[in-house]
Design a protein around this nucleic acid. Structure first.
Lengths: 126, 126
DNA sequence: CCGTATCCGCGGTGATACTG
DNA sequence: CAGTATCACCGCGGATACGG
């Protein structure tokens, strides 16, 4: 269905691994909202907290670390007193654009598809 | 960064919803492996269990129900004795192809990107 | 202000046993 | 064979409080 040519076990598991990598990067409640919040410009920790539905600092911290590891977000410390920390998107985060667009358009059409199906069913029942 | 034009709150949350829909459909340990297993042809319940790393029947059942709801998988009962049940992919599941391809290629390039970064860091440390 | 530490409840997953 | 029921566990995520 998806691949007409036969794949070796190794090729297949590599492909699965790549897909899992990609999903892991975006899945979870918070990563996309954080990225979106930062897409309008850099924010400080507390500002991010407020921007993203009052996420708990523990979780925000964890999410930001993951986003840093994946090089989507850059953390810069300003030696003011008290210290302030700014988070901003890296240029590399732009590589997500196509993927996100694809997710968005598929999700949209899928919602409409499922919706129209359930309407049909209701019409038949009536 | 991602959208140059300003979006209204409603448009934005609709877009987020679509993305979440798409992610939910594919996220989790099992959905992709199941779809992949079925992509070579229909399988029965027990065969699927074996094909997908000995997934527990409870979980497999739950996952299959979700995949049915989303119309990726079709369930057909054969009135043999004892009954046998076949699961197979629907044509609609083909709409995932582009999305999966995108996930796969992005995941691959990302892994290479992160890997090359960590090599660079090691080289600098040495 | 920027986080970390501690505690805790809940959901999801797995093991096992069981019914039709 | 196909699927469900029961139980137990673990880890995520939230609330709250605290340290640098």
């Amino acid at each position: 269905m998806f691949k007409k040519q036969q794949l070796t076990k190794t090729e297949c598991s590599q492909s699965m691994q790549a897909i899992k990598d990609a999903l892991q990067v975006l899945s979870g409640k918070w990563k996309l909202p954080i990225i979106l919040a930062l897409s309008d410009g850099p924010l400080r920790f507390k500002e991010l907290q407020r921007a993203v539905n009052n996420i708990t600092p523990k979780i925000l911290s964890k999410e930001l670390k993951e986003l840093e590891l994946n090089e989507f977000v850059e953390r810069t410390v300003h030696a003011t007193s008290p210290v302030t920390v700014e988070y901003n998107l890296t240029p590399y985060s732009g590589t997500l654009e196509k993927l996100i667009a694809e997710l968005q358009s598929w999700g949209l059409q899928h919602r409409q598809y499922i919706f129209s199906k359930s309407k049909m069913r209701k019409a038949v029942e009536a």
